[in-house]
């Protein structure tokens, strides 16, 4: 297969990352920035998962090679592949990236929750969630030598 086909997954995932990064950087709206950040983080996860896919493999839950499901998988992958890459007669996808990305997803939602909580407080303190307006408000107040505590 040509490089385009063999690396299609990676390239598509990278396009997703670029999209997330663009959304994150191009907007001044704090909630939208969090959405961009979430896409950026998630797509990194998709990159890892792409690395761990093994063609002809199945999810890393141990199967009996002689069961119907194991037979069907083996038939699909071909005996030679199974002999070479299988573990006790079944080819599995790589479980390690899955574990790592489980962790990363949870870290992502934690970041999202804390970020949005700060954004909500910002709205209460400044009345806006646009970066430009917040900066303008701060400039005015700093110039006047006073800083308000949040309500």
């Amino acid at each position: 297969m040509s490089a385009v086909l063999t690396h299609f997954n990676y390239v598509a995932v990278i396009v997703l990352m670029m999209g997330g990064l663009y959304i994150l950087l191009s907007t001044g709206n704090l909630v939208r920035r969090m959405i961009g950040l979430a896409i950026f983080q998630t797509s990194t996860g998709l990159f890892y998962i792409s690395l761990g896919k093994v063609s002809g493999g199945t999810a890393a839950i141990t199967l009996d090679a002689v069961s119907a499901e194991g037979q069907a998988l083996a038939a699909r992958a071909g005996a030679e592949q199974v002999a070479r890459y299988g573990v006790e007669g079944v080819i599995y996808s790589n479980p390690l990236p899955h574990v790592l990305i489980l962790t990363a997803i949870v870290v992502g939602v934690a970041t999202l929750a804390v970020g949005l909580a700060i954004a909500v407080r910002l709205r209460e303190a400044y009345g806006t969630i646009e970066t430009d307006e917040i900066q303008a408000l701060d400039r005015v107040l700093t110039a006047a030598g006073q800083v308000e505590p949040a309500p």
């Binding site: 990194t44 990159f47 407080r121 400044y126 800083v147 505590p149």
Partner: peptide
């Protein structure tokens, strides 16, 4: 820090964005 100085909020948010981009770059 908002209780004394509300500029803590945008500063923390900014740090969150930059810090998370940094962490994600590290993961990549």
């Amino acid at each position: 820090g908002e209780r004394r100085d509300r500029r803590a909020l945008p500063a923390a948010f900014n740090y969150l964005i930059m810090g998370t981009i940094g962490a994600t770059f590290y993961v990549i």
